[in-house]
């Protein structure tokens, strides 16, 4: 008999696969927190005469190359580089290593920082210049204009894009399986190697991703509607 989806066989693996969602969410969460911090720094730098060149260069590079390349750089190439410097320049016999988890956090933070900086920049640009002028005309200081007008409105305007970036991180973090981190994708591969089932583990992983993304999307809409000023 042809079995398209062997639920019986996969069911015992579901708890094992599901545990991978922790990695997925943790990477997305930490990377977006660091990404916001980095994004703010890059945005501030872009307002500086000289530092702005660096900021643009950084954003250009990280948006212009695939994440899998960036991850491989951080996880494989970067430690090797450090090690040869330690050995050949400082004559030290120590080995620098980066755990797969740390490499994933670093890569996705650096990567989302570039995207988030763009989001913050356009959020700030979306604030009506007239409102800022009205505040200036009342004698309000720049500090208060930023704190009470520009940032709240910019945050509200860029919230959907920020949430979208978070959802992208949730999905894209699936490539950490290539450096052996036991996220959802990696676990499905492990199940395949144990059971020779290809279809079932992937379907389970697909469902988990879909549900997580759906929940995040609905949550984001909820928050968005609360943020409207009306």
């Amino acid at each position: 008999m042809l079995t398209i989806f062997n639920f019986h066989a996969i069911s015992e693996w579901i708890p094992y696969i599901s545990k991978g969602v922790g990695y997925t969410l943790l990477i997305a969460l930490l990377a977006s927190i660091f990404g916001v911090v980095l994004g703010i720094i890059l945005t501030l730098m872009s307002r500086h005469k000289i530092l702005k060149k660096f900021s643009y260069f950084y954003i250009d590079i990280f948006r212009g190359t695939p994440v899998i390349l960036q991850l491989s750089m951080v996880y494989f190439a970067f430690p090797t580089l450090i090690n040869s410097i330690l050995r050949d320049v400082f004559f030290l016999d120590v080995t620098f290593m980066l755990s797969a988890f740390l490499a994933a956090i670093i890569t996705f933070s650096l990567n989302s920082g570039a995207y988030i900086s763009e989001i913050i920049r356009s959020g700030i640009n979306s604030v009506d210049k007239g409102e800022i002028e009205a505040a200036r005309a009342l004698g309000v200081s720049n500090f208060h204009i930023y704190k009470d007008i520009i940032l709240p409105i910019a945050f509200k305007n860029s919230f959907p894009a920020l949430m979208n970036e978070f959802i992208t991180l949730v999905k894209e973090s699936s490539i950490v399986s290539v450096i052996g981190l036991q996220d959802l994708m990696r676990r499905s591969q492990i199940v395949t190697s144990q059971t020779y089932m290809y279809f079932e583990p992937l379907i389970i992983v697909g469902i988990i991703y879909y549900v997580v993304v759906k929940i995040l999307t609905l949550l984001s809409r909820q928050i968005e509607s609360r943020l409207q000023y009306d």
Binding site: E131, A134, A135, I153
Partner: peptide, 15 residues
């Protein structure tokens, strides 16, 4: 603070 201004496009703080 001594000179108020009223604009063509109102410019109320939307938030």
């Amino acid at each position: 603070q001594k000179i108020g201004m009223v604009f063509q496009s109102f410019n109320l703080f939307s938030n």
